[in-house]
Design a protein around this nucleic acid. Structure first.
Lengths: 297, 297
DNA sequence: CCCACCCCATGAATCTGGTTCATACCCGAC
DNA sequence: GTCGGGTATGAACCAGATTCATGGGGTGGG
């Protein structure tokens, strides 16, 4: 009781703005004026007494506090939106098959599906913890999340979120190496790769950092295993945000460099070409769409 | 996108009304007029096109649709309320120890704590899956949920929710016995007890139902085990709502009689007498308080 | 039986806060 | 420079949230 809620409409405006990284885009989504959204965001900021966005050229960036507000607001509104989609009694039941890349399943999809299940106990999920490289596999699932450069030809879908990457290490390794000279740490420790070694190259190029000539390298085919190895202090991994947000927050991993840089691929949400029978996959699909367009820290 | 949200202020009013089982009580909580809440509930009902409450003498009862709306709304607002409690940057971290009765832990507490963790990754929980019969144990936990008749002397707390009970069986047993004559089914099958056999007596009395003279009875000391046995078709258990809501919704248990009747005990939320150091337990406590006063189906 | 009390519903009036309009600002591209 | 993209801000406006006033329907006690 005496439960104090933040002003709800400002919150909704802020959530959309954060998701799009743009006030104007949010206004378009909500069919409001840019001015309205701007006012509401400001109202929310005075309510919280802090600013939630850092206004920079080329878009908005969430402040620390903005991130937490955004995370809860996004979850809450996604739940509430489920109520509004259908005016008939909606006791959804059925099975939905979803394929998603390994780490993505555990760190992004599962917590969200969990919430969905809480409200819709009749819906069962079948999760395939795979990277969908062969497009034929799409025939066998209702929804897929892929790590790539776009929506495959002939499929309905959209960009789910932009991914960024940053080198991470275990707290122990960080403590022994020190934070003074990250580039040195990078050169003097083992590099952990996940399958494709081009991602590290991409990151170094963007960051303007040179690696050692003949680095000690380990290559994993399973990204979860790579992260596990990293947490045990076996080397430096290139972590993908926002998948490792939780591990960073818990302090089980720490960032070697401050800034995360855009990954060469991003996450796309797609649905199998022939909408499968029953409306349940459709509801889940549009629910997941509600998470699209998030901005990264 | 084009995510359509239900009208938020009506929704908030409805949530409070459902939680209290009373329009007037909700109005008091929200510092509004009874008239305001009534209007908003009605607005929400026309929005959804269905009624959400069955108005009966002695309070409101949620309709089927009302229940699902309430469940999502309550969760969403509880999350949002976490944002408003503190205007400073709140990166909560620390450990909170909670004790709760066995089934309650798994079926009520865990799903909710999960949501909490999603927003507050820094908070760790220690859960004691016990019924707190010895009050001394309260010294060792931050928060406890007990199954009893009131808040123990000298403690801060409140009624968390009223419990109701109803006989349940496995779907298979239901199929073989038929739904025609539940009283006969009750007399001809094994009765499963959880510890105390008085609960069945209490229920039969309230329901005006007579049991067999010498029923076949099994007694379990672990309620979870009793439910497990019931789901495997070993007999008829007295299930406690809302703990088994999920199992009923999934169809893993079915109700033998339509109506659930008030249990002889209820759930109380209490906090250890000397507020433990740090504000984290306090935040969790008031968050849990937000779930107090739910009405049963 | 009737009155007091509590609950809820409802129409009209009101007021707050969300929304628009109009305008100014900043920045980068052409 | 000007255009086009973005955001901020003050004043005017309007709708939806809220109140007021009122009526109906139970229940319990004198």
């Amino acid at each position: 009781m005496a439960r104090r809620l933040p002003p709800l409409y400002p919150l909704r405006a802020f959530e959309a703005a954060a998701r799009h990284g743009s006030i104007s885009a949010a206004a378009r989504e909500l069919s409001l004026t840019q001015s309205a959204v701007s006012h509401e965001v400001k109202a929310l900021e005075t309510y919280f007494g802090t600013s939630l966005f850092r206004r920079t050229r080329s878009g908005l960036v969430l402040t620390r506090r903005g991130q937490t507000v955004f995370a809860t607001a996004q979850g809450a509104f996604a739940d509430l939106a489920l109520l509004g989609t259908d005016s008939e009694s909606r006791d959804l039941s059925g099975t939905v098959t979803i394929a998603a890349p390994p780490l993505f399943c555990a760190h992004w999809l599962l917590p969200r599906l969990d919430r969905f299940s809480l409200a819709n106990p009749g819906v069962a999920f079948r999760l395939l913890n795979v990277t969908l490289d062969r497009p034929e596999l799409l025939q066998e699932v209702d929804i897929a999340i892929i790590w790539g450069n776009g929506v495959p030809e002939g499929h309905d879908g959209m960009k789910l979120m932009a991914a960024t990457q940053m080198p991470v290490v275990s707290p122990a390794l960080m403590a022994s190496a020190g934070a003074a000279d990250p580039e040195k740490t990078l050169r003097e420790n083992r590099i952990l790769h996940e399958g494709d070694t081009r991602m590290w190259r991409n990151w170094c190029e963007l960051a303007g950092v040179r690696m050692a000539e003949n680095p000690d390298e380990w290559v994993f085919d399973d990204p979860a295993l790579m992260i596990e190895a990293c947490m045990r202090g076996h080397g430096i991994a290139l972590g993908t945000l926002p998948l490792i947000d939780g591990l960073l927050a818990e302090g089980r991993l720490v960032a070697l460099f401050r800034e995360a840089l855009p990954a060469p691929f991003h996450y796309y949400l797609i649905r199998s070409a022939p909408p499968s029978p029953g409306r349940v996959p459709g509801v889940v699909f549009s629910w997941l769409k509600g998470f699209a367009g998030g901005v990264e820290p």
